[in-house]
Each structure stands twice: as C-alpha cells, then as structure tokens.
Design a protein around this nucleic acid. Structure first.
Lengths: 247, 247
DNA sequence: AAATATCTTGCATGAAATTGCAGAAAAATG
DNA sequence: CATTTTTCTGCAATTTCATGCAAGATATTT
C-alpha cells in the first residue's frame, strides 16, 4: 500500500467517523503504529486533521460545526452492513436516498465495480467518492422536501433502465405492502421497483407494521427486507409467508 | 513496445485500477523500473497522473479522496458577496460548480425566488437547502474527477435553456479568453455560455492572466468578471478594454 | 548509402524516502 | 505515585529515486 493511499484511507476514516485511534488503524491496514503516527503527524502538519494523544479527530468536529446526528445511526449502520454483500461486481443498481442508503454507500468496498443510479443528491455525492463506481443521476427537477429528483423526467429515465437490483429505503411497511406519504416520491419509487429485477427494502424495525396514506407496492414485489433485528424475530413471520427473504 | 504504447498502457492501467506500482508495471511489460519511472514522471509532468513514492495514482483518486480544505477561502467568500446582488427575483440562472459557487449559494438571501440550473452535485445540494429556490439538475453521467455531470445529455439539456445569467467559476483567464484543461468540462461550460444571456465569471486574482490548454471562449462573450481585488486594480485594464465590467 | 544527431533504454552509483524496532521520555489513568 | 499507554528519538534494513553514462535504435541530413 502506497503512503499516499494510506493517508487517503486515514482521511476518509476520519471523515466518516470523526475520530480514530492509532491502534485501530494500525490493525486495519497492517502497518506499525509508528507509521500511523507519522502519517497522522504529517496530516496534522498539513492542517487536515487534529492530532490528539492516541489518535486523531476530524477538523470539522472540533471547529464550530455542529453536525446533526442521524436518528438511530447505529441501527442504520447495521442495516447497511447487511446490504453490502448483496452487491456484486458489474451490477446495475437503482437506489433511493435516505440516511441508511448513505451509510451503505460509505461501506461499499473500494474495489467494487458497479453502476449506481439514483435521484438523490446526497447519495450521488457519496457514490461519486468511490474510485470504481459509475454514478448516473436520474432526473432533473429536485424536490426540496425529499432532496431527490422527481417528476416525469426522472420517471422516464428510470423506465429506460433494466437494473439488477433496486435498494430502497422505506417509510412504512405492513402486510398490505409498502406505503409512503409524498405523492411525487411514490411515483419515483414505483418506477424503480418496475425497472429492477429484484427489490431489496431497508427499514428500521420501528417502521415495520406501520402504514401511511399512499401505496407503493404490495409485498409480492419485494424480494428481500433488511432491518437491524435478527431475521429470526417473530415480527417477520407474515413477511416470510409472502416469500420475502429477511436479513 | 514503443514508448507511446507503453505510456498508453500505463494510463489505461491507472484508469482501471486507480493506482499502480512501478514494480508491477516493470514486471508486466518487461522493462526496467527506471524506464517506468521515467514514464511516470513524464505523465505526471503532463498532469495526467499523480506520481507518488513507489508508483502513481489517478487524478480522480486524488481529488476525491485527498480532499483538503478550501484554498483561499477568504478570497472566495469575498467574491461570492459581490455576485449575490446580481441575482434578482424570478431569474433563471445557470451555474457551474466549484468552491466559489458553493460559497455564493450559501450567501443567497432566503427570500430569493429564482431557478438555478447546475450540473454540480455539491452546488445542487446547496441550492436545495434554500426555501424559495427551484433546482434543476443537468445531465446524468457524473464525472468523478470534477464531480459534475458531463456528456451529451448534459449538453443537450443546457442547450434547451434560455437563462438570464450564467455564473461560472473559471480556472484561467487571459487576454485571449477563458481556458481550462478538462475536455468534458469545457464542453459543458461552452454550452452554458451559449445558453445564457449574460455571463459572469468568478476567479481568484491568482488565476487572472494565466492560461491552460483548451479554449472555452473569448473575452467578448464575457459580461462581468469578479475577483477578490478592487475593480480599479490596473491588472484589469486589458479586460475593461474588451468591455467587461469588473466588480 | 553513409554519417550524424537524437531518442530510448538499462545499468551502476550514491542519495533519499519509507518503515519497523528498541529504549527513553512524556502523557494519561486510577 | 505507580502503572500503563502513547510518543519521540535514533538507528538500521529495505526500497525507491535521480543521475550520468554507454549501447543500441531511430530519425535526419548530406
């Protein structure tokens, strides 16, 4: 591993987690702690990080910036970890936006070679950080409430795709299917499900067995559901009956 | 194997893998490491790759992973402040990306009612934060090196617009006009200038009177230029002669 | 075609960079 | 204050780099 790569890795880890320990880094990338320390010192000299005893902190963390923490971030990270293995090289993947998807994007292995389609600005931004991922942005008009592209342009772009996988963050699911409450978003999600061969839905357990006003699709259109809970949880029985794989 | 062939091969490998070791290349194509090193140095001199101890990295790898804090942030904020008054209610505005534009987006008054078109993910993201601004994202394929949408889709979308204003961050300007060094970006910028009634260019003073390899447009297509310096600075005389307003 | 200049390449040399390790110093912890 | 952890320093082993030089290949000129 090249020195520059290693430092890039460290920077990214700090960006993602806001803090890191020298010892952790040393284990993760199999170099001595001395090397890590030297890297951290160099990065600190360049004013890119803040070196502290035992590790380093992100600059934004300490300076005035107050980063809004994500609701149930731990659950979402767990979900994200379960999705990653489903993604293989050379796949075409449609995704929505949402914090769980962002978390997933960060966990994608750097040697993954795939094409991601999304209408979400934050998601597109995250995908674009990856060296080997191709990003296609869907649509043009951006809905402020949901920060994703909506409208006819987005729908027609999606319809023109044959994707391997659709990974969708959802707001509510129960035995009747997936529901949501933003009409424009619904249209986009429906199109995505149509355009993909398989559909994976991500949801924190709290949203399971709840519903909202507008229908996206029934359970039979879903192939896999991922939550932070253990798949054997009885909560999932009705969904398993509909042939949905729980992870 | 000819030198040009070899360098083409190296470039391709770097494109594919984002990084390369001198020793690997030496083995793969059976030339001495010295030759590889010489090649890498030449390619680095041409700004095609980034040479590091032990090998080389692709430029996109570098720009997206080794992100540093913004160069000359203060100057850019000053520039941004000068742009804002040019933007009026109900305007249609085309913008590029770049840190200066982002800074500008943050300074837009919250009661501003306008439509912004951009192919830059970070810029779109910033505009979308504003309550009364409509954001239209241009294009679909996102270039990793520049984090903006490029290609035919973007160009054709832009061509279909009649905007009031084009606000463009630039990399180099001198008496012959605006120049840049990324072919795909050039195409987008050209289209933007064509599509807008008036063009405002933003540049830190450091870039004034410099030039790069590829031409975007001549001075006569520019209406206003904004830098962090006082407009009366003699540096701007030649540009004023071409009828450009300096702010 | 011969002579000449220019480029390219591999090798040898010494210089520089990188990394890991040992032991002393400094900082954190209870 | 004693213990543990982290840091710093110097050092040595290894790798990579820059440079000059010579042999061969290629291009240009006469």
């Amino acid at each position: 591993m090249l020195k520059t790569e290693r430092q890039a890795y460290i920077l990214r880890q700090i960006d993602l987690h806001n803090r890191i320990l020298s010892s952790d880094l040393s284990n993760e990338i199999n170099v001595s702690e001395d090397t890590i320390r030297r890297d951290l010192n160099e990065l600190a000299d360049m004013d890119k990080i803040i070196k502290v005893h035992g590790g380093a902190l992100s600059k934004s963390f300490h300076s005035s910036f107050l980063k809004s923490d994500v609701y149930k971030a731990d659950s979402k990270r767990l979900i994200a970890q379960k999705v990653v293995p489903l993604i293989r090289n050379n796949m075409f993947i449609l995704t929505t936006g949402g914090t769980t998807i962002i978390e997933m994007a960060r966990l994608l292995p750097s040697d993954l070679n795939a094409t991601f389609f999304t209408g979400s600005i934050p998601a597109a931004h995250e995908y674009a950080q990856h060296p080997n991922i191709e990003v296609i942005f869907l649509g043009d008009k951006i809905s402020k409430s949901s920060q994703i592209a909506v409208g006819g342009e987005a729908i027609s772009k999606i319809s023109g795709i044959k994707a391997d996988l659709c990974i969708m963050g959802i707001n509510a699911i129960d035995e009747t299917g997936i529901t949501d409450n933003d009409w424009e978003v619904i249209q986009v999600k429906k199109a995505m499900i149509q355009a993909a061969e398989k559909t994976v839905v991500l949801s924190i357990a709290e949203k399971v067995n709840t519903h909202q006003k507008l229908m996206i699709c029934g359970l039979d259109e879903i192939d896999t559901m991922i939550t932070e809970l253990d798949p054997s949880n009885p909560l999932f029985e009705p969904y398993k009956k509909h042939g949905i794989t729980i992870l």
